[in-house]
């Protein structure tokens, strides 16, 4: 048997076995990985909307928007607790994934969580801290949120930038402003 035939046989057999092994193990792990993703999403929704029990997806091409209720979806007396929206900001070093929650009448921000980011630890990375996030809680969705260097006034829809991380602070704020305008239209169209 010449050498090329040997090479072809060896590579083919190894690749075939590897392919089958991976296909079977993927089937095995797939369910668990999907479960983890659902669990992570539910946990972060509960973090931005306390008391959340069920969620309903609002169809949209651009955003992932959930209507969040306090009781299972099939119950008639369920109350809308708010909207949870997944959105992205372009940060200092890549995209920042944010889960934003808004009151049921869509007038005020409840809070948000940063799900993924690659900002500089200790500077832009502080956007995940509650000191920064709490500044947004209760801000109006009707007016643009402004980023101020130094002390800010909540009544004027202002937040203070993290010192040394103005770009990250502005990126988050810009994403929230744009998301709020667009999602409001989507929700109004949906009703």
């Amino acid at each position: 048997m010449n050498i090329s035939t040997k090479m072809i046989i060896a590579l083919t057999i190894v690749s075939l076995i590897a392919g089958f092994a991976l296909a079977f193990s993927y089937e095995f792990f797939k369910v668990k990985i999907a479960d983890n993703a659902v669990k992570a999403l539910n946990e972060s929704i509960s973090a931005v909307i306390p008391g959340a029990v069920s969620k309903e997806l609002i169809p949209s091409n651009e955003f992932t928007i959930y209507k969040v209720y306090d009781k299972p979806l099939d119950q008639q007396d369920k109350v809308l607790l708010g909207y949870a929206i997944v959105t992205y900001a372009s940060g200092y070093q890549g995209s920042i994934k944010i889960l934003l929650s808004v009151t049921p009448d869509f007038t005020k921000i409840i809070t948000f969580r940063v799900l993924e980011h690659s900002e500089t630890p200790g500077l832009g990375g502080n956007i995940v801290n509650s000191d920064f996030i709490s500044q947004y809680e209760g801000l109006s969705t009707e007016k643009e949120i402004k980023v101020i260097k130094g002390p800010s006034v909540k009544e004027n829809n202002e937040i203070s930038a993290i010192s040394g991380a103005t770009i990250s602070s502005k990126a988050v704020t810009k994403a929230l402003n744009e998301t709020l305008i667009k999602v409001k239209q989507i929700i109004e169209a949906n009703q």
């Binding site: 090479m7 668990k32 983890n36």
Partner: peptide, 30 residues
């Protein structure tokens, strides 16, 4: 394993185990 294709065969085998490790971590240590 024929000497001429050993790197290719090694890489396929390594990649298979790496993918298994990656799936395992994703499933049990997200």
């Amino acid at each position: 394993i024929p000497n001429e294709v050993r790197i290719g065969v090694f890489t396929v085998i390594i990649a298979t185990f790496v993918t298994l490790a990656d799936l395992f971590l994703k499933a049990y240590f997200p």
